[in-house]
Amino acid sequence: MNYLYYPGCSLEGSALEYNLSTIAFMEAMGIELTEIEDWTCCGASAAESVSHLLSLALPARNLALAETMELDADLMIPCSACYLNLRNVAEKIKKEPDILNEINTVLKEDNLELKGDIQVRHLLDVVATDLGADSLAPKIRKSLDGLSIAPYYGCQCLRPYTVFDDPEKPTTMEPLINVTGARVHAWDMGGKCCGASHMNTKMDVGMELVAAILRAARGADAVVTVCPMCQMNLEAYQKKISATYGEDLSMTILYLPQLIGLAIGLSDKDLRLDLNLSITESFRNKLNNDCVK
């Protein structure tokens, strides 16, 4: 299997381990990723908050570049915000041809033209739908038996476009967790909002949302995410949130490819667990001792 790959800006910076663990996991599964040449920012949540046309033109540039790669493959994106921005363009131009013309008037400045024939897929969609637990099962080398994992999907891989999971009660990560030998932590926070950029501009509001998620994760050994912004919000402010609410809300937060990567026998070095901001002592102990075989 082959995919075009758009990592997005975060994966070259604060979410470097998401990029490296995705590449390591896909390689171990025999999947080839071809990065879009000369890709640029998708506009994140910034463009839509400032200019509608820019919020379409920035992701469209990357789709147009992907088309020039002339590879008969879907485009896989690990970041939910990037995924939604690129998917949004792909969906909108199908329904409104005027928008395609407008976008192409902008892209002409960069000598690019968008046709719109590439499928935009989220990493979780690819792992859950195209690979699936069945193809992971024979590759499991290290059972994560004894760990309880809380699947956190966040918003933008689920909504507004309902593509591969139930946007109200997402479940696609559950078979992937079960096949590693771990248990799924029962909670209903999987599709709830982490506050996105509130943590930067309206910290009190962001902390309230993140605190509710971390509180509900209590009893799990780790939360797994599929988005760099969710990951950052959940892992980076735990001390501050714990101090503010007067309770211990420390929790291990991992990216999905890191968790399933461990189970198929990749090392924590391959998966760059050293780059995560919140891996608790007790998680490390469980991972290294007998309860995980």
Binding site: C9, G43, A44, A46, L58
Partner: peptide, 22 residues
């Protein structure tokens, strides 16, 4: 103002370099 300065700073970095430099 606060949100818009945040987003505009983000986009200015993108305009200059193609990718955001955090």
């Amino acid at each position: 103002k606060q949100s818009s300065l945040f987003y505009k700073s983000f986009l200015e970095s993108v305009r200059r370099h193609g990718k955001v430099r955090e």
